[in-house]
Amino acid sequence: MITKKDLEHIGWLSRLELSEEDREKYTPKLNSVLDYFGELDKADTGGVEPSYHVMPMSNVFREDVPIASLSQEEALSNAPKNQDGFIKAPRMM
């Protein structure tokens, strides 16, 4: 069970601003999904290794050879705010 308080913390970790109304709305829905996920507890996974990757691949590399970068214009073309070639972000504090 997650509480509205837990949701505030998860919202913070996710950088999603949640209003009181949002938390009211989301909490029961998220709990119903988590209830459903409770199904997982029933599976016997003793001695089973997790599958992080579905294919048993390893050792895929790039060689250390430069390729063309984007132009500065292209790099900045989608940034809502920029200044002197920098991307402009909000203040830190």
């Binding site: 999603l16 989301y26 997982l40 996974t45 089973v48 992080y52």
Partner: peptide, 28 residues
């Protein structure tokens, strides 16, 4: 909803219960 649940499933204290468990089931 999915971001919140995914964040929760990976968070300290729940990682093994949800994320790791799901990956083991994936093996099965």
């Amino acid at each position: 909803r999915r971001i919140l649940l995914g964040t929760y499933a990976l968070s300290a204290g729940y990682h093994d219960k949800y994320y790791l468990k799901a990956l083991k089931i994936r093996t099965l």
